[in-house]
Amino acid sequence: MANDPIHQFQISKIVPIEIGGIDFSFTNASLFMVATVACAAGFLYFSTSQRSVVPGRAQSVAEMSYEFIANMLREGAGSHGMKFFPLVFSLFMFVLTANLLGMFPYFFTVTSQIIVTFALAILVVGTVIVYGFYKHGLHFLKLFVPSGVPGALLPLVVAIEVISFLSRPISLSVRLFANMLAGHITLKVFAGFVGSLGALGALGIGGAILPLIMTVALTGLEFLVAFLQAYVFAVLTCMYLNDAVHPGGH
């Protein structure tokens, strides 16, 4: 099944664990979650361990990602939103590292599992709801009642607002999941053509150049997508957190 473009998403048990009849096995997906955390945390930890005033390359990258997210959050949710900085920074670094690790051949892409991205999206929206009610009480519901809407239109507008709010975890998770999934399948399919065509003899090898070029180009595109999706995830998280900090302020 080496050429099966779906095979890369197959989960296999490494250490079977079962608690109360539920399968909690340590799988290849779990392995790469741990690897993602180890890579991201290890990089951030060791690159900043010098605490140089004049940063080296690695420390510059760590500082750049910190400031990148800090600016994004400050613009998106204001200075009150900065208390969510560790969350947004963790989400961004986790998604980015998981996406980039997935670019290695034979590596498992953690973010290509809908349950993972959905859990992360629920974490974001859950934070928004919990913090919104904790901080503003029932005023948080103003989020669904935009000011300056005529009374007759209000029920309709409120319904739309509620539906758009409820669809946020779905759109947030499906966007990341679908991008990673589709990208990796496309890459695998074109890479599979190279092998299949190459097995056909001289003409096939000539023809295999085209999917090979496509594979190279797609690999570059996938690196862009890997970063872009992490960025989009973080930006949307900032926007949603803004609702928790300033309900009715949009």
């Binding site: 989960i11 741990v34 955390v37 930890y45 900043t48 599992q113």
Partner: peptide
């Protein structure tokens, strides 16, 4: 594998979040 993925995501991401919050940030 939803349950397993959720558990390991909570463990790994939770650790990562704590590390970010307590050390890196």
């Amino acid at each position: 594998y939803f349950a397993s993925q959720l558990l390991w995501l909570v463990i790994s991401f939770g650790l990562f979040y704590l590390l970010m919050k307590k050390v890196i940030v």
